[in-house]
């Protein structure tokens, strides 16, 4: 996997959310850091992504583009706030 950042999640997240989710703010449930998704540390390999907190390195969310499905797991974030 390549170490990248949350910008790369824009495509996969566009399949499950309207608007740009990488500009959304979210709070890390582990350390409380609030950042936009684009600022997260992301490990990516084309079809699967793990986003981690820029401050404490906990898993914020994972996305798997599995064939025609996109599966989003958001166990590490709260107060997810989208700009509208």
């Amino acid at each position: 996997m390549q170490k990248l950042d949350g910008n790369v999640l824009a495509g996969p997240l566009s399949e499950v959310m309207t608007g740009d989710a990488t500009s959304a703010h979210a709070r890390c449930v582990h350390c409380g850091d609030v950042a936009v998704i684009a600022q997260a540390v992301v490990y990516a390999d084309g079809s699967r992504f793990v986003a981690r907190c820029r401050r404490c390195d906990s898993v914020l969310l994972t996305i798997v583009e599995a064939g025609d499905d996109v599966r989003l797991t958001m166990t590490g974030v709260t107060a997810f706030t989208m700009p509208v």
Binding site: G6, N7, A10, G11, S14, G19, D20, T22, S23, V36, I37, A38, Q39, P83
Partner: peptide, 9 residues
């Protein structure tokens, strides 16, 4: 192509 993508950068 999928896009346009991204709103931060």
């Amino acid at each position: 192509v999928r896009g346009p993508l991204g709103g931060w950068f």
